[in-house]
Design a binder for these strands. Structure first.
Lengths: 290, 290
DNA sequence: GCTGTCATGAAAAGAAATTTTCAGAGCGCG
DNA sequence: CGCGCTCTGAAAATTTCTTTTCATGACAGC
């Protein structure tokens, strides 16, 4: 029997692939605030999910329940189990996997990193960097190392949409001098440099400062030497139960900065995005016609 | 109003003296295993308590509720409160910043994304993908879109160190055919495709399948069309309080996979990393000497 | 003992919920 | 473009739940 020992949540997940659009929408709604969201009548949950009641019936039958009442009976049992056993809950991220599974150990570590990084992070620094990035008069340059190059690229790709006057330096240092040559006073150089700090980053930072550029550094808890030259530094916790360092929290801060910049200059950005949409559309047409 | 702020349990207790024999019997039944016992229909709880349905109606009205549905709605609210409290939201991540600061809102959202993604993620899928990636006989190909290209690159950069036979496809589709041409049966194509799904990804996936390649897709909750062709799909929650989608959780899974592959083939990888160290050292020397 | 009051549940009436039917919309495919 | 397919929700049909009505029985007071 499909719904015998597994939880309703499990059953939904395991069938998710076979669900249709409206059913997925319903499933999302049920899983959001699970299992309480499934306590009401079929009418209520259909309304909450924005689907019709027949959709609900079809889905629960597809999941292997006899009908809605049967489905709800199972939910009630789970609620009962949950409530009578309040301490359990959430000691595991990926349920159905042992607590020692890499996913769970990683999740714990990243949570810790995020918590530590944010509690150490100065909000004023964040706000100031956001406003520097928002200033369209300043040119923006992004650079990362072998591993962090992808982060620099990610940051750059977004900022390039949001505002003009941005550049991504290749992670290969040979082309850097020509960028420095073009830097103007007030320009902003965003450096990603985590352990196994690359010596050349310091040279780059030094040269950029000579051109009058401001520097922002993303680094780890042991701090890149380039940070000495920086106006602002983000010290990110990067340890993971892995032979490699984790960039998750760094990406988190990058995304938060992107949103901060985005929202502070929404009016101007909106226009740019519309234009961009148009350009993409054109490109697509070109391809079809070609 | 009687049932305003007090819990249903409180209300029952405070009216207990004025209840009749059958009503007391019902009240006992409700309080036993409270509040779950009140989740069912009026018929069910009447049967459980060994009283008639009119008794139930009379009692809940005596308690100050408009009717049975009203009574039950209050119970549902309590169940919800009970269930969601233990999970207790971290009220503030970045202290010294208001709870509404973008950093805190982002942290909440990412936590939710991570939780939902992991609970939906099938560990067997994860393990299977990890072992596919570990198999050195299979060639590995990584590809991403405009935004997700950086993720593909990040994944690629790590895998390239860990094992041979890996390639990164440019996010520009014009060079894809030549890669497909070289794919062998059993090769693995890792696709990153989140909303604003790129039509070309489906074409690429189709072509790769024809060459006998297996496909793994990283996509969002709305699922890329390319997932239909995939052996395994990671559905990642990507919503953030932002005009942009969040890649943090996707990166999380990528890093966990990297570690899973790394650790499953540590002996072989160790040698490679030593050699790589040596090569870097040499490069540095070249530069100094040059 | 008679009478009135109250508690109680059976059963009817009324209201909702659940399921089924069905037609239209959308989409892929030849 | 048309055909057939699937998905979807409106609405009907059915079932179940909720409330009301009412008959019965218990019991206290007269």
């Amino acid at each position: 029997m499909t719904a015998a020992s597994k939880t309703v949540s499990d059953v939904i997940h395991s069938h998710f692939g076979t669900l249709t659009r409206a059913e997925k929408q319903l499933a999302e709604s049920l899983l959001d605030n699970y299992p309480v969201s499934g306590l009401g009548s079929i009418t209520t949950i259909a309304e909450n999910a924005g689907v019709s009641t027949p959709t609900v019936v079809r889905m629960v039958q597809k999941l292997g329940f006899k009908g809605y009442p049967d489905f709800q009976a199972h939910l009630h049992q789970e609620v009962e189990a949950t409530i009578s056993n309040p301490i359990a809950k959430h000691d595991r991220w990926a349920s159905n996997a042992p607590g020692t599974h890499i996913l769970n150990r990683f999740a714990d570590a990243i949570m810790g990193n995020l918590r530590q990084t944010l509690s150490a992070l100065d909000t004023a620094t964040f706000n100031d960097v956001a406003s520097l990035l928002s200033d369209r008069k300043r040119g923006l340059y992004f650079v990362g190392g072998r591993i962090t190059g992808a982060l620099a690229e990610y940051f750059f790709t977004h900022m390039q949409v949001i505002r003009p006057n941005t550049a991504l330096l290749s992670s290969n240092s040979s082309s850097w001098p020509q960028y420095v040559l073009n830097m103007n006073p007030g320009d902003l150089l965003v450096i990603f440099d985590i352990r196994r700090y690359e010596q050349e980053m310091v040279s780059l930072a030094t040269a950029a400062r000579k051109s009058g550029a401001e520097i922002v550094v993303f680094t780890d808890q042991w701090v890149s030497p380039a940070a000495k030259l920086a106006r602002h530094t983000f010290r990110v916790q990067i340890e993971a139960p892995s032979a490699w360092d984790s960039s998750v929290v760094t990406l988190f801060i990058v995304e938060a900065l992107i949103e901060a910049v985005q929202s502070s200059t929404w009016d101007e950005t909106k226009e740019r995005m519309k234009t961009l949409e148009g350009l993409f559309e054109q490109t697509r047409l070109f391809r079809k016609l070609g």
